[in-house]
Design a protein around this nucleic acid. Structure first.
Lengths: 143, 143
DNA sequence: TTTACAACCTATTTATCTGATAGGTTTATG
DNA sequence: CATAAACCTATCAGATAAATAGGTTGTAAA
């Protein structure tokens, strides 16, 4: 599996915040309830989104989270890069992977690089705004 | 990570067998040595390839493994489907996954389905013959 | 100014999966 | 009949995913 629940939840939260972005700060409790996700688990996910500037958090009464930019300014790729340790389809393409000594003769390397590229281009072509656009269907994102 | 060592090793073995397919049955020991893979681990991988008809195994002295078809008859997708529990990018698209009750309202579902399709189409478009074609480069498999 | 609320922080746990290892059994060949 | 090689079953160590628990700090409203 390429994308964990962490990444899936993060996208659902961003979509949720995009849909309710006129309502100011939204408390985690409310988002968690609406999305059916454990509050505590969601908390750890949102923390990293705040730390990386995708969300703003406001403490105290009346506080909560909101987007820092317009929904079309977040690509799915941007979001998943933060929540997933790696989005590479195979271990040998992960950043920080120990360089493979067979790289020069590996018959599969180019094929994996092609897959990596296909995935990255697809995810970079979809934004949070696309996700919340009404009536989005299965074939919409394939060019 | 989408594809484990199991799948990566399987493809390398098929490519190896394709390159040496004029030499009859190749013993696992020889393949493992040439590819730098543990014999015992490789054994468990090849077993499933034999069971599913991708390879033929011959026991006893002079035995080993060989391909059952021509290299261009194996797509990468065919191979990985056997070695990986799932090639779905997300848990909710795996076969046998408990049906998601939010499917009808999920803003991300269509996007994941599109990714799933992009991956499947890419992997279905590459064969073992492509892998062993001399001089294959990084951009070759992206249309 | 105090109370309630909500983000923030650190640690721990549980389960599953990956990658690998070990040792024995059967079958074919020279 | 000795040897080589596939076949089979079980086990294990480590990593990662997914979640849980409980406490601390900051902010706004009462």
């Amino acid at each position: 599996m390429l994308v964990s629940t962490k990444g899936r939840y993060a996208l659902r939260v961003l979509a949720d915040l995009a849909e309710h972005r006129t309502e100011g700060y939204l408390p985690l409790k409310e988002i968690a309830r609406r999305q059916g996700i454990s509050e505590k688990y969601l908390e750890s996910i949102l923390k990293s989104l705040v730390k990386n500037g995708l969300l703003t958090g406001l403490r105290g009464k009346g506080g909560g989270y909101k987007l820092t930019r317009a929904p079309e300014q977040y690509t799915v790729w941007d979001v998943l890069r933060l929540t997933e340790d790696s989005l590479s389809p195979v271990a040998c393409l992960e950043e920080g992977a120990s360089p493979c000594e067979r790289a020069a003769i590996c018959p599969t390397l180019a094929m994996w690089q092609g897959l990596d590229r296909v995935i990255r281009e697809y995810l970079s072509g979809v934004t949070v705004a696309d996700l919340v656009r009404p009536g989005a269907g299965a074939g919409d994102y394939v060019i």
